Simulated assay, not measured.
Amino acid sequence: MEQTYKKILVGVDGSEQAMEAFRKAVEVARRNEGEVIVTNVIEQQMTTALTVAPLGNEYIEEQMAHGNEILERCRLYAESVNFSKITKDLTFGQAKSVLAIELPKKHNIDLIMVGQSGLNRVEAMMVGSVASYVIRKAPCDVLVVTPTEKQEETEK
């Protein structure tokens, strides 16, 4: 059975791990004549708590501007490698559920690509790993992208 991926979702937060996942998602989409939906999720819990604070709206606007800047960098990268099938998505919510549940349903996603976290074991246990949640809850295939530097370390 041949598997092709036509709708690929990748979450970006500005980290190098996420950007590497995005770059690889573009190549997977190109090979499969598919589309990349790239999203930046603004954590809803933070924005809900801050909207009642005096500077809350200013913070939300900063987060939206930052998210749009990250998405625009993705668009520019895709353009630089002659890939045009990209949809930018700025979303409010909890990153785990947005990536694993909401956007896969909304866009009929058949592959989610996530960057491997830079967290150490204690941080991952305390914060929880978005990647591990997505792997457990996603309705489609999930590909965790290992940073190139880790691949090179393993080869030595």
Rank of each mutant, 00 (worst) to 15 (best):
P147C: 09
K106Y: 08
A138H: 12
A131C: 09
R136L: 02
L143C: 02
M125K: 03
A78T: 02
N82W: 00
R136V: 01
K106R: 15
V134L: 11
I101V: 13
T91Q: 15
A100M: 08
L119Q: 14
P147W: 04
A138F: 05
V81A: 04
A78W: 00
L90Q: 14
S97Q: 15
T146F: 03
K96L: 09
A78M: 03
S84P: 06
R121Q: 11
L90D: 13
K137M: 03
A100W: 11
P147Q: 15
V130A: 13
E123V: 05
V134Q: 14
V114K: 09
A138S: 14
S132N: 09
R75A: 01
E79N: 07
T87N: 11
H107T: 00
L143I: 01
E79V: 00
T148K: 11
S84A: 05
S132D: 15
V98M: 14
T91V: 14
L99K: 09
L103H: 08
C74G: 08
P104I: 00
N82V: 00
D141L: 07
M126L: 15
P147G: 10
V145K: 12
G128Y: 01
K85C: 05
E102W: 01
N120R: 10
L103E: 12
T146V: 12
P147H: 10
L103R: 12
N120D: 15
S84L: 02
A124F: 03
S80P: 08
I101C: 07
A78V: 00
V134S: 08
V145W: 08
S132E: 11
V98Y: 13
C74A: 04
T87W: 11
I112H: 05
P104A: 00
Q116T: 08
K137V: 01
R121D: 14
Y133D: 05
F83I: 06
G115W: 00
S97P: 10
R75S: 01
P104L: 00
G128E: 04
V134R: 13
C140V: 06
L119I: 07
I86V: 13
L103C: 06
P104S: 00
P104D: 01
K137N: 05
A78P: 10
T87D: 09
E102Y: 02
E123G: 12
E102K: 05
E102Q: 06
A124D: 15
R136M: 04
S129T: 03
E123M: 15
G93P: 05
V127D: 01
V130Y: 12
L111T: 08
S80T: 02
I101R: 13
M126E: 14
L111H: 13
I101E: 13
M126F: 12
